[in-house]
Design a binder for these strands. Structure first.
Lengths: 121, 121
DNA sequence: CGTTTCTTCAACCATCTGGTTGAAGAAGGG
DNA sequence: CCCTTCTTCAACCAGATGGTTGAAGAAACG
């Protein structure tokens, strides 16, 4: 279902353990074992989480002997913030226009109908 | 599993249909039937999607006769953008520091060790 | 070479999820 | 009052997901 990039990204960050992993990778690169240590789940489970993060483009991995250091890729964050900000702005702009219309209507009402209060805004 | 607010939010936006619903609600409020019309799924499925969005705090609903107009709540977007921006900045700051360290190390190496190239840049 | 460490693959399991159909609330309209 | 409209509830189903255990790759170490 989540076949497009944005779905993968949001889905990857929908898990608290994965968000925590991202938070720790923001501090510095780390291996699978290091990342798995704080949690009470198996290292295999963490390995799966890392694969999800990697597929989403949030994490890249290099090789260092047997270890696979994980590195946080920050560029993909833009995809999400751009999406969020777009619709947030769109909705908020609409609100402002709606408010303006309501304000004008109210002013016209007070002009033609009863003049209960001063028209100063 | 996704019991905290952030998990609910990311999870809600991980579905392309739900993101599309959010995009359309950014243009204006709409009823369940109106929202369901463009998709080839049943209206019940869309009703479920709206419940997910509502539980995540992204959508609020009022009552208008039999209709339940859906309204986009934009404030909760901040929760996500704050989280994303925090760790993005954290990681990028770390990169800048790392780059500075590497640059200094490189300069010291060229000063003490072999002087193969000019130390400019 | 055998062993130890780090990591992943494979199979399995419980639960969640997104979809369906069918029936039932909720509220107006004839 | 019935009937139609809008919406949700309930039960069900296929597939994804997050977890487990056990075994197997990959690469250093003795």
């Amino acid at each position: 279902m989540g076949d497009d990039r944005l779905s993968q990204l949001f889905s990857a960050l929908a898990d608290p353990t994965r968000r925590d992993i991202v938070a720790r990778l923001a501090v510095g690169d780390a291996t699978v074992n290091e990342l798995a240590e704080p949690y009470d789940v198996t290292v295999q489970a963490v390995s799966k989480h890392l694969r999800v993060l990697e597929d989403a483009g949030l994490v890249s991995r290099t090789r260092d002997a047997q270890r696979r250091p994980c590195h946080l890729e920050t560029e993909v964050f833009d995809l999400m913030t751009k999406w969020i900000e777009r619709y947030r702005r769109e909705a908020e702009d609409r609100f402002r226009r709606l408010d303006a219309v309501l304000e004008r209507m109210e002013k016209e009402t007070t002009e033609t109908g009863n003049r209960t209060e001063g028209a100063a805004s």
